[in-house]
Design a protein around this nucleic acid. Structure first.
Lengths: 255, 255
DNA sequence: TGTTAAATTTCGGGA
DNA sequence: TCCCGAAGTTTAACA
């Protein structure tokens, strides 16, 4: 599982180690120790000397972690070129990509540990509770939104984006449904308003188009904005929360 | 730097290791090997048996990485309780938090390596090219947006939402400026429209309020929506790109 | 490639 | 705590 481990490697040894493993791309490589990091691209950043953990995955993605926080201090999601070299007696790692043009440079001042790990078999991963799943469920059983509702389309593309559910109500009026897996904000109201307007543009003047925001809850300001625009809210408790699972009382849409 | 390292630890040894180091919170702890991961909270997920890398930072944040990709497969940004225990002869790690109520469970089926790293001194980190910085620059020199513009306020709070720059033009008309550090989308146009409407609501009926979207570029659909609403676009090349730095020709706002 | 929107988004700021 | 908005957001889907 540990393919190779170096302790307090010399600059040349570290550079050789990094180039060897990033070239074969069959290991997750990490280096921990004193380093400096600079980034230039969509923005620019510098991290002064500190102890960081550098991870290079098999796909060439790079992340540099500081002691706290879930997010890396610096990163490169995809790398076109990954190169380690020795310059002025220190090992440095350069990770660059085009589109967008960006460069992350790590200067290893005092590398303490370098580790190459075989991390090959990823198991199947299943996520439940996404908006996509909510959409599937509601497309199958639109009466959860409103009795008599018939779904005409999903992800219907209009000029301003994609309508989650496009439907017709019991009275034959067209209905635009915007789904949110979590509490709906003013942003969601803006989206819904935009879609309703787009649909109205395709229909004869005066045709009624309803807009429904379906979510487990809505913020106060969002509800005000919603009502100002003549749109509607439907509470859809969608997500299988830890609480409901524990108590085992509330059957959810996604069990 | 390496505080402790275990190879192929027994379940009890691994549990003791994890509890010891997560309790003292002075090390970044990692375990690599065969594991299963389940998550329940805002959503739910399961990852079948595979080789993963588990990181626990000093602040109790947890991330579980699979072989590729910049993002962790599972994570917990903050942990209220972090506990390792042995159950049915395997070591499992439980990371939970309240608000939102979430639980990540890692079952270590075959831990290969466990490592406790001292990762203490983080150096100063400076980022340039943020929208906040763009706002500061334009507040000082609003003529970059338009000659004669006077800035009245920054981050002016209107009914839910902050106006980046609130200003008055040469003719005394009020101006709402929305900034984007990157290409502006329909979302930005929605924001600007919302703020302009809010400001109009506080002024006598008929008062003119201009809305300006200031960004390095704008998407096609966003420009259409912008013009439909009678709003304006100003190109502000704000970000110090790698290209401009390399060629050294284009002086940017943020040098 | 361009555009849009979701995300277990995370993170920070203000009321 | 709620709410909003930025982010080097990342990622996926679709024209």
């Amino acid at each position: 599982m540990i393919r190779e481990q170096l302790t307090l490697p010399a600059p040349e040894a570290l550079a050789a180690f990094l180039n060897r493993h990033t070239r074969t791309r069959d290991c997750l490589v990490q280096v921990a120790g004193l380093a400096e990091v600079t980034y230039r691209g969509r923005a620019a950043s510098t991290a002064d000397v500190g102890t960081y953990l550098v991870l290079v995955k098999q796909d060439g993605s790079l992340q540099i972690h500081h002691p706290t926080g879930i997010k890396p201090m610096n990163w490169q999601p995809k790398t076109d070129e990954l190169l380690a070299r020795v310059d002025e007696d220190v090992c440095m790692l350069l990770a660059s990509r085009r589109s967008p043009l960006e460069l992350v440079q790590v200067v290893f001042l005092l590398p303490q540990v370098a580790l190459a790990l075989e991390l090959q078999e990823a198991g199947a991963f299943v996520l439940s509770g996404s908006e996509a799943q909510m959409q599937e469920t509601l497309a199958r059983t639109p009466e959860l939104i409103e009795p008599g509702l018939r779904v005409l389309d999903r992800e219907l593309l209009v000029e301003s984006g994609g309508i989650d559910l496009y439907a017709q109500d019991g009275q034959g009026r067209f209905v635009v449904v915007e789904l949110k897996r979590a509490r709906a904000t003013q942003h969601a109201v803006s989206q819904l308003g935009r879609y309703v307007r787009s649909v109205q543009g395709t229909l004869p003047v005066g045709a009624v188009v309803r807009g429904i925001l379906a979510a487990p809850s809505i913020t106060g300001p969002a509800r005000v904005e919603l009502e100002r625009r003549g749109l509607e809210f439907r509470e859809i408790s969608a997500i299988p929360t830890l609480a409901t699972h524990r108590e085992g009382t509330q059957p959810s849409l996604f069990d």
